[in-house]
Measured scan of single mutants.
Amino acid sequence: MRVFPVYAPKLIVKHARIFLTGVIWVKDLGRLEFEKGRFLLPRKSLPKVKQAILELNELIEAQN
């Protein structure tokens, strides 16, 4: 598990694309899981977490 002390979308996306499957922890967002290079949306999450995951997945799609 990698810990990101700040929310840096480009760096987080780079990590997810390299490792494809895993878990990261982002300060103020908490634990985020990714599989096959995409972030998974938890069943229950705060609106800011949901927005961050959608933003990260959009960045991943834009890079493909």
Rank of each mutant, 00 (worst) to 15 (best):
M1S: 14
R2T: 14
R2N: 07
V3A: 04
F4G: 00
F4S: 00
P5N: 13
Y7P: 01
Y7Q: 02
P9W: 02
P9H: 03
K10Y: 14
L11R: 07
L11M: 08
I12H: 02
K14G: 12
K14C: 08
H15G: 01
R17N: 12
I18G: 07
I18W: 10
F19D: 06
F19Q: 14
F19C: 05
L20R: 09
T21N: 14
G22V: 03
G22L: 02
G22Y: 02
V23T: 12
I24P: 00
I24S: 01
W25E: 13
W25C: 09
V26E: 00
V26K: 00
V26P: 00
K27P: 14
K27S: 13
D28M: 08
L29S: 01
G30Q: 02
G30I: 00
R31C: 08
L32P: 01
L32V: 06
L32T: 01
L32H: 01
E33T: 14
F34W: 03
E35K: 12
K36M: 12
K36S: 14
G37A: 10
G37S: 06
G37M: 11
F39R: 00
F39W: 02
L40H: 07
L40T: 09
L41F: 12
L41Q: 11
R43P: 05
K44Q: 10
S45R: 10
S45I: 11
S45Q: 10
S45K: 08
S45P: 11
L46R: 15
L46Q: 12
L46G: 13
P47Y: 06
P47F: 05
K48Y: 08
V49D: 01
V49W: 03
Q51F: 07
Q51W: 10
Q51G: 11
A52Q: 04
A52S: 07
A52V: 09
I53D: 00
L54P: 01
L54Q: 07
E55T: 07
L56D: 00
L56H: 00
N57H: 02
E58L: 11
E58W: 09
E58T: 12
L59D: 03
I60A: 06
E61A: 10
E61R: 12
A62K: 10
Q63I: 09
Q63P: 09
Q63S: 12
